[in-house]
Amino acid sequence: MSYDEFYIKSVVRAIPDWPEAGVIFRDVTPVFKDPRAMRMVCDAFIQRYMRTGITHIASVDARGFLLGSVVAYQLNLPLVLIRKKGKLPGTTLSREYQLEYGKAAIEMQTDALEPGNRVVIFDDLIATGGTLLAAISLIHELGAEVEEVAALIDLPDLEGSQRIQDSGIPVHALLAYEGL
């Protein structure tokens, strides 16, 4: 583990038994409060995507916006927002996905992407992968290609990153936490 990874991991807060008993919640909000950690995270992603030929950054509501917007700004790329249903004006596409306790839906504006665009999707954390798989589906419906899914944290025991990779999309996470 590099010094940067060690430092960032030391800033992420573990909250036991939240949202339910037996779960260790990985709280990334301290990263956003620590300028050094935030710079390390964003710089790592900027370096990764600097010379890749991607044309757009897509970010998932809401903490994905914080990472994706910085990366899009630094790489001088358009930022595409993927939001919870009912939050975007204009004509949108919508996708439902399963949660542990029901269903949710995300949306994207129909003019956000076009065929030939090459997109990296940002989110803060990969758990079961439902939200990101729905985002991939929306992007593909507009004819664009997803080059990679990027996240600060992967929780591999929940198999979301594996589901995304099984769909043919590479995954890059800066940190991984084993165990629930």
Rank of each mutant, 00 (worst) to 15 (best):
M1C: 15
Y3I: 12
Y3P: 15
Y3C: 13
D4H: 14
E5Y: 00
E5A: 13
F6L: 13
Y7K: 03
K9L: 02
S10R: 01
V11K: 07
V12F: 13
R13M: 03
I15Y: 09
I15L: 09
I15N: 01
D17S: 02
D17W: 11
P19V: 03
P19Y: 10
E20A: 07
A21L: 10
A21N: 09
A21Y: 12
A21M: 09
A21S: 09
I24P: 02
F25D: 00
R26S: 01
R26G: 04
R26Y: 04
D27Q: 03
T29V: 02
T29A: 09
F32V: 15
K33Q: 12
K33F: 10
D34F: 02
P35N: 03
A37C: 00
R39V: 12
M40H: 12
V41H: 01
C42N: 11
D43H: 09
F45E: 04
F45T: 04
R48F: 10
R48A: 05
Y49M: 05
Y49L: 05
Y49T: 06
M50D: 15
G53T: 09
G53Q: 05
I54W: 04
I54Q: 11
H56T: 08
I57S: 07
I57K: 06
I57G: 08
A58C: 10
S59W: 15
D61N: 14
D61C: 14
G64E: 08
G64T: 05
G64L: 15
F65K: 10
L67I: 14
L67N: 03
S69K: 13
V70I: 14
V70T: 11
V71M: 07
V71Y: 11
Y73L: 13
Q74A: 12
Q74P: 10
L75N: 05
L77G: 11
L77M: 14
P78F: 03
L79V: 14
L79A: 12
R83D: 08
K84F: 13
K85D: 14
K87A: 08
G90W: 04
S94K: 13
Y97I: 06
Q98R: 13
L99N: 02
G102E: 03
K103V: 08
A105E: 11
I106M: 03
M108N: 08
M108K: 10
T110G: 07
D111Y: 13
D111G: 14
A112E: 10
G116Q: 04
R118K: 12
R118S: 03
V119K: 06
V120W: 06
V120N: 05
V120D: 07
D124P: 04
L125N: 04
A127P: 01
T128S: 14
T128R: 12
G129Y: 04
A134T: 07
I136Q: 09
S137N: 10
L138T: 00
L142F: 05
E145H: 10
E147S: 12
E147H: 14
E147K: 12
E148K: 06
V149W: 09
V149R: 05
A150D: 06
A151K: 02
A151S: 12
I153L: 01
D154K: 01
L155K: 00
P156R: 01
D157M: 09
E159Y: 15
R163Q: 08
I164Y: 02
Q165M: 11
D166V: 15
S167Q: 06
S167H: 06
G168A: 02
H172K: 07
L174Q: 04
L174M: 05
L174H: 05
L174T: 01
L175T: 00
L175R: 00
A176Q: 10
A176W: 13
Y177H: 00
E178D: 09
L180H: 11
